[in-house]
């Protein structure tokens, strides 16, 4: 089948439009970014983070941090770090690999300071390394 030059141009334009529409649709429907790809706003020890939060809690909402500290308590969805930060693991199955009193480094998102239970809350936590 041979097409005239005009038909070829129109067909190419239609194909490009279909691809563009598909790309826009795919972009607008994409799920939220995973914690691995999020930019880190703070790296340090859990105590350092706590003192920064005490200065200005509102500023730290939704910030991504890499913190290290000691596990002081474990439950079925996450663990307590340094008795004052609750880290909810993105993958709750990983809880079984943790032991109390171990040092750990995690990357997580700061949700906010929970004044009901008086602790800092992090979620989407992934384990960085277990020394």
């Amino acid at each position: 089948m041979s097409l005239s030059k005009k038909s070829k141009v129109i067909l190419s334009i239609i194909v490009i439009i279909i691809i563009a529409v598909f790309a826009v649709y795919k972009y607008s429907m994409q799920p939220p970014a995973k914690i691995e790809s999020k930019k880190v706003d703070f790296t340090g020890s859990s105590d350092e983070l706590l003192s920064k939060i005490q200065q200005n809690a509102a500023e730290w909402q939704d910030k991504v941090v890499i913190i290290s500290g000691k596990i002081t308590g474990i439950d079925d969805k996450g663990f307590m770090l340094s008795s004052s930060i609750y880290c909810q693991l993105r993958d709750s199955l990983k809880v079984s690999s943790l032991t109390a009193n171990q040092n750990i480094s995690i990357k997580g998102r700061v949700i906010g300071y929970d004044d009901l239970l008086e602790e800092l809350k992090l979620d989407q936590c992934i384990i960085q390394q277990q020394p």
């Binding site: 607008s28 429907m29 994409q30 799920p31 939220p32 970014a33 909402q61 939704d62 949700i111 906010g112 809350k121 979620d123």
Partner: peptide, 11 residues
């Protein structure tokens, strides 16, 4: 915390 609500679509 309101920001902890997870939707399927980021937008």
């Amino acid at each position: 915390f309101v920001k902890a609500f997870r939707f399927r679509v980021a937008l």
